[in-house]
Design a protein around this nucleic acid. Structure first.
Lengths: 114, 114
DNA sequence: GCGCCATATCACTCCTCGCTGATATGTTGT
DNA sequence: ACAACATATCAGCGAGGAGTGATATGGCGC
């Protein structure tokens, strides 16, 4: 039983970690940030994020698989949009937390200065 | 000016990404999760998370530098606590988002099955 | 002061993930 | 059907970071 609880707990933690990893990349954040304003096609995302096209496509595939974005075909374009307003909520709360800890986060050199 | 805006925007993105990376690790999530309930000393965290002591200390240093946790000396113990309730808010947001996308996240194999 | 416990630090290895460059698939007009 | 554009896929490279083991520091009681 204790084991069962542990398993459930760690399963939750693993899921959380995996979801956080989805957000823990500047390229994906740039894409999600752009999509929070309006749905966009891939080539539009390439323009705005200044990332390479394969790079954007790769990230979109990941985000799509994870269910963080959805896609609709529109002629030869494929238009992507965020799948849930909860994503926007999450990003806003991160900014709120950054209001408090931004200095520390920037100073922390345990991983590379972005 | 456009350049300035770009710089500001990308600086925001980099900060967000760095903060997300802080949360994007099962060990740190286990530590933060435990601390959300009550302040704990290092050896207590070691017991509950079943991580090695150096490992816990390393993560705590990082979390401390980032300002996500705070510490108080208490005799020979050092008691750690989360620094802001916004962290709890953020973790709740993630769980809320997981309610929607959990299946997709687990299925996504672009990064390793936690 | 000495041993003990609590915590921190460091060097090292391994693994994961992001980016690139080339190429494939698909869709639309003519 | 062909040319042009939009998007997806894949192999390979390179870097960042997590964990371990050994060791150092620091406070406490006897």
């Amino acid at each position: 039983m204790a084991q069962l609880v542990d398993d459930r707990k760690s399963a939750t933690i693993e899921r959380r970690a995996k979801l956080f990893r989805g957000f823990a990349d500047p390229s994906r954040l740039a894409i999600l940030g752009a999509l929070c304003n309006e749905p966009l096609a891939v080539h539009e995302l390439v323009e705005r994020t200044e990332l390479s096209q394969p790079n954007v496509s790769n990230h979109l595939r990941c985000l799509l698989e994870c269910g963080l974005v959805a896609s609709d075909r529109d002629g030869r374009f494929i238009r992507y949009r965020i799948s849930s307003p909860r994503i926007t909520v999450l990003l806003n709360d991160v900014d709120a937390l950054l209001d408090v800890v931004a200095k520390g986060v920037e100073a922390c050199d345990n991983y590379r200065e972005a």
